[in-house]
Design a protein around this nucleic acid. Structure first.
Lengths: 341, 341
DNA sequence: GTGAAAGCGCTAACAA
DNA sequence: TTGTTAGCGCTTTCAC
């Protein structure tokens, strides 16, 4: 009942042998006399010996822990990604330390500092929407801590990156709207310092160009992900002299809120205005009409990120990887016009 | 540019003093000559000295890390709770290690084992819906690791607990439905090994009794939180000889899905059937009609849990606490009948 | 006020 | 095959 836990020293004392022998027997990969090994294992079992991870950490200067920095856990996209990361990490015997940047550069920097101070073996990160510089990542590279960026990546850094095809899927979504006969397609675009947002906007614009639709500034609204002003933006769009007949929203919550406002203003969805979301939240299946959206492979992106990171942790010479995980267009009724051209 | 980080030994060598003096100067609370202290701090600053947390951990047998076990991060309730926990923990200089039990007893047990192996200083936990025993928590108590249960608590254990008034709020919600003139109120109840679910069911039943409504077995459906069978349950309720005219759902997702099915079957909400949700998800504001629900104080529960835990970590003799954080009934149109009795 | 030495629990190089 | 020793980076007695 002593609250002190048992150490190899205790086992050694009991058997009258040295602690190095005990250490060797316990760590499998050294030659120890079968007899003594057996005895050691028995005693270890009896005393319910558990190696002290803290001692190992100090000795080996690693922690079997990976750090994760994401903007926020309440965002379903990241919550799912965490699931994928943890799955892979836990199977490999790694713990996961999670930090939230709350979309703030300074918090992200502090998170990073504290993860480094905790000597995590590697870091997976999706940068905050506010972050427009990369100097705070230098410390990781300096300390040779493996790092994988996912989703919100930084192409300018020479590190592993896991991302999805924002440009292509945005292109495909816009093209889908065009094929439904939509002529004036508006977009709620994200923060332009984010690579993803730029790609999405480019995909949208290029699809319009391909089909000879003019790209109008007034149809492009710049927002952030928290969507505080969606109602205002929606009203703005409704009141345009040339009201759009389709809108590609920044995410499903914005899309649903917009639908709400459109309906209150007597607009029919999708015939007066088609609505396409982004993120495939549960909510989209239960609104009227059900929301078309883009399914982002967040769980898989998390899992893939963890796999790449672990490979780099285990072998410092493992190559930097850039991996694409594809998104998918999910067509429901909010963009499905009966009267296609 | 050496990748080895600087230690107190380095500083000592440079100044030609002993490392104990350096240690003392750096750890504030010992008397060191003003002159030498100043020099030490200067050099430390110059070399950008960072104490090695691993060495400290071993020495002091603690890690400045708290462990958190929750059923799943994709559940918005828990995602928000994590936010509250992290806020408080980070301000106090603690890191947070998060594990998901995926609603599985065995995973929960493994999570616990791995957190203990990592020597977390304390644990915050919300038990899985599958967990119907407490033996796996003994290890925590044995090792005298402070623990706080939140939301999904275990009243039978002598530990700190943070919970909300499930009974009272469920009573209030049911009473609200009665006051709207509902006569036959059904409930989608949760797993009965969960304390919360039992309390909610009891609140529901007692409210009915108080107002002389009979409690009918056929109006009580037992479900789990993932809600795979909601559509089936809904159809079952619709087809009852005495169709209910109100339903108190297990959570907002279930409520929204039920509304969807009700509407498809030509039922008007709330006049044919009123719907009350649970959890106050964003989704509830944007469905037709907007969903009445219960707002659970998840962020606050997380924050309060962390505060209690930290108090117990800092002072082992700090008292066990049981703290109630109140929920709130949010009335929207899905339960607001114009024709009250 | 400062230094020497021991120790947290473990591993690993070197000796025997 | 096993024991001795040193050391990971830090704190903390105990001398001086």
């Amino acid at each position: 009942m002593s609250s002190r836990s048992v150490t190899i020293k205790d086992i050694a004392k009991i058997l009258g042998i040295s602690k190095s022998t005990v250490s060797r027997a316990l760590s499998e990969h050294s030659d120890v006399n079968q007899e003594t090994r057996k005895k050691i294992l028995e005693v270890a079992q009896q005393l319910n010996y558990q190696p002290n991870a803290l001692a190992l950490n100090l000795k080996q200067q690693r922690t079997n822990t990976i750090g994760v920095i994401i903007p926020e856990t309440v965002n379903r996209f990241f919550a799912k990604a965490i699931g994928g990361i943890q799955r892979v990490a836990n199977l490999a015997g790694y713990n996961v330390m999670i930090c939230q940047s709350d979309e703030s550069y300074i918090t992200e920097k502090n998170n990073l500092r504290s993860l480094i101070a905790s000597h995590v073996d590697g870091v997976i990160i999706s940068v905050s929407s506010e972050t427009d510089r990369t100097d705070h990542f230098d410390l990781l590279l300096q300390k040779k801590i493996p790092v994988v960026f996912f989703d919100r990546i930084r192409e300018d850094l020479h590190t592993s990156q896991v991302y999805t095809d924002n440009y292509e899927i945005s292109f495909a979504g816009t093209e889908h709207l065009i094929q439904q006969g939509c002529q004036r397609i508006a977009i709620i675009a994200g923060p332009q310092n984010l690579h993803n947002s730029r790609n999405r906007l480019n995909g949208y614009m290029d699809a319009l160009k391909k089909h000879d639709r003019p790209v109008k500034e007034s149809y492009i609204v710049h927002s952030n992900f928290t969507g505080g002003n969606i109602e205002e933006y929606t009203r703005y769009l409704i009141n345009l002299p040339q009201r759009p007949d389709a809108v590609f929203a920044i995410n499903d919550y914005a899309a649903v809120e917009m639908m709400h406002v459109f309906k209150k203003n007597g607009l029919k969805i999708p015939d007066d205005i088609a609505v396409l979301g982004f993120n495939n939240e549960n909510i989209g299946r239960f609104v009227e009409p059900p929301l078309s959206t883009i399914d982002l492979p967040s769980y898989d992106m998390g899992a893939v990120s963890a796999e790449i990171l672990l490979a780099q942790i285990r072998d410092a010479s493992a190559p930097i990887q850039r991996k694409l995980v594809k998104s998918q267009l999910i067509i429901r009724e909010s963009t499905h016009r009966i009267t296609t051209p």
